[in-house]
């Protein structure tokens, strides 16, 4: 993907009526709950249980969790595609059912649900019209985004002829058509090849540099680890972990020493002569766990001890965090 940053007319400022609105909080949920019911109103599945969350302006926020953990439900509740059974959620201080909030949001769904009979140009023109963009702006913006996602060569082909990766790219382009302040990405790297995945992650970081807020949910933990500032881990509709990625992955009861210029002999004796060796100490810090280990630990612990929160943070059997 090219790195040129497309320009689009700034979204009209929303009329803010919420006196408690903090402009640094983009998304806020309080005790957000979703229960799926059957036709007769009987509860079937409790998909989300009392989620309290804040996403701050300018951060890349990851929602993690196994299948059925409530990630997609959270995204759908935030977008107004579902109505909460309890609690509340706001985006830019507005209730999620308020249509005007969508003027500042870009959304890439999991499967790029697009109209397959439209070409890439027609697709972007269609979504541009939905933002009430004038014709000239739509044309310019569509051309820039098609260039950006690398589909210029296929811009006049109907989407039904696109591969999955190409569809993801045009899906991303439609999500950015309005130059949104908040981008919600559902499995953004799904269906992309390694190169495409790298480009997607670069784009997310680029969006962050531009001051945009990005919320993504993904199964690909390495991707989340690479780009997210903070993450929330959900399991069976409950929030299990929330925090900065670097803090969550830190093993607090261990230290690691990075040294330079040691001889092989010195390496053998390093444990006992650390203080007197001739080596130069560069760094002493805690080693990092991988997000994958952290995630799997949380899932295992949640299965063993349902309902508990922050169990990993308190350390494992070996005293590791």
């Amino acid at each position: 993907m090219a790195s040129a940053t497309p320009t689009a007319p700034a979204a009209a400022p929303l009329t803010q009526t919420n006196v408690d609105y903090d402009p640094n909080i983009v998304i806020e949920t309080q005790n957000l709950t979703k229960v799926y019911s059957d036709f007769w109103g009987r509860s079937k599945v409790r998909a989300l249980k009392g989620l309290d969350l804040e996403v701050r302006k300018g951060e890349v926020f990851g929602l993690l969790g196994p299948n059925g953990s409530g990630k997609s439900t959270t995204i759908k509740l935030l977008l107004g595609l579902l109505f909460p059974s309890g609690g509340r959620a706001t985006i830019f201080g507005k209730p999620t059912t308020e249509v005007s909030k969508n003027e500042r949001i870009g959304y890439l769904p999991e499967e790029s649900y697009l109209y397959r009979f439209l070409t890439a140009e027609e697709t972007l023109d269609f979504y541009g019209r939905l933002f009430d963009m004038p014709s000239s702006v739509r044309r310019e913006r569509a051309a820039q985004l098609i260039e950006k996602v690398g589909l210029k060569w296929a811009r006049r082909r109907p989407l039904k002829e696109y591969s999955k990766g190409m569809t993801r790219r045009i899906g991303l382009a439609q999500a950015l058509i309005n130059d949104p302040d908040l981008v919600l990405l559902d499995e953004p790297t799904s269906g992309l090849d390694p190169l495409g995945t790298r480009e997607m992650k670069d784009l997310i970081l680029e969006l962050k540099e531009q001051g945009k807020t990005v919320v993504m949910c993904s199964h690909l933990l390495a991707d989340v680890q690479d780009v997210c500032d903070r993450i929330a881990i959900l399991y069976q509709g409950e929030l299990k972990e929330l925090g900065r990625v670097d803090e969550l992955l830190e093993v607090t009861n261990q230290q690691q020493i990075r040294v330079e210029g040691l001889t092989p002999d010195a390496q053998a004796k390093i444990a006992e002569i650390l203080a007197t060796s001739g080596g130069k100490m560069l760094d002493v810090s805690s080693p990092k766990n991988t997000l994958e280990n952290l995630f799997l630990d949380i899932v295992r612990e949640s299965q063993n001890r349902p309902g508990a929160r922050g169990i990993i943070g308190s350390g494992d059997d070996n005293g590791n965090r």
């Binding site: 107004g80 595609l81 249509v99 969508n102 949001i105 649900y113 939905l130 309005n178």
Partner: peptide, 14 residues
Amino acid sequence: FSKTIYTVVTKPVR
């Protein structure tokens, strides 16, 4: 059914 409506109703469309 095909969920294409998701990309429409998440725009400022009434």
